[in-house]
Design a protein around this nucleic acid. Structure first.
Lengths: 154, 154
DNA sequence: GTGGATGCAAAGAATTTGCAACCAA
DNA sequence: TTGGTTGCAAATTCTTTGCATCCAC
């Protein structure tokens, strides 16, 4: 029976991401693998700082994480998304369907919304003469748990 | 014939925003009016730094701009939106239709997209138990001008 | 007159960069 | 072997905060 360690080693999405690095001519280093695993384990958007926390055993430098994430973003391995306060999160998108999120503005819980009606609109943008079109869509709201709870500051 | 100065004084959207400030119990100060005018004049999303630039005659402090924008955002006078690199822009939304943008990832030109098919989806999010639902949608792409130009670094 | 708002300066947070040592290919 | 990558530390950039002064109400 594979340990969680082994399972994550064999994760097909990890393999695919590593393949993308390799094919693009980037080196497959220990820090990069660790960061990819952290992104996959997060199973949703995650903050740079949280990646750093989850990698404190590996002693991976923050600057390295910023540099790797920038590389991953360029290769389309991760996608940047935003909290309403402007902070950035990164979402591992290899091997998954295009999707969006619902972010609770109170507890910051992130839920995945597995529909995307917007993709069709990209065609419209393309017709306006734009190339390499992409989009970013996030929903914000107060989740059920938070709205049932009486406000802390009340 | 009114000068541009006078016209902006009488802008109904400015008046409405000022009314919102007033009704919420905030003071209507010179810096706040100047910042609102800069936002309106921008006619689209604008960076904090650009507001600061356009107000250099008024000698308005950056800290003041940050504080005012935060107030405006809370009152729904402006809406935050994002460049793909994570930097924040602010869009004056009083008296306008809900809309989205197409941002050129090359020259950073911002175009307004006057359709919003997403509003209907907010209902879906609401049905999941979320309250105070809002959303953020931006399109990114390389505009016609930029894709016709041969790349600078080529 | 009075409390909220501003300007200034300093603190804090987030992100980037230079460079020598390191290691994946 | 060798150039891409990392860790460390310093630099930059972005944003917030404390506080005395000021002004909108």
């Amino acid at each position: 029976m594979p340990s969680p360690e082994q399972r994550s080693e064999n994760d097909p999405n990890l393999k695919q991401a590593v393949g993308m690095l390799h094919k693009a001519g980037y080196r497959v280093t220990q820090p990069r693998i660790s960061i990819l695993k952290a992104l996959i384990a997060a199973d949703g958007p995650i903050k740079i700082e949280d990646i750093h926390q989850s990698l404190k055993e590996e002693n991976c430098d923050l600057a390295t994480i910023y540099r790797c994430i920038a590389t991953f973003e360029k290769l389309g391995i991760v996608r940047r998304c935003f909290f309403p306060d402007g902070s950035s999160l990164f979402d591992f998108v290899v091997g998954g369907e295009h999707h969006h999120h619902i972010i609770c503005t109170s507890c910051q819980k992130v839920e995945t919304l597995d529909v995307c009606v917007v993709a069709g609109l990209e065609r419209l943008v393309h017709n306006r003469g734009y190339r390499n079109v992409s989009h970013m869509l996030e929903f914000f709201g107060v989740c059920e748990d938070c709205s049932e709870k009486p406000s802390e500051e009340a």
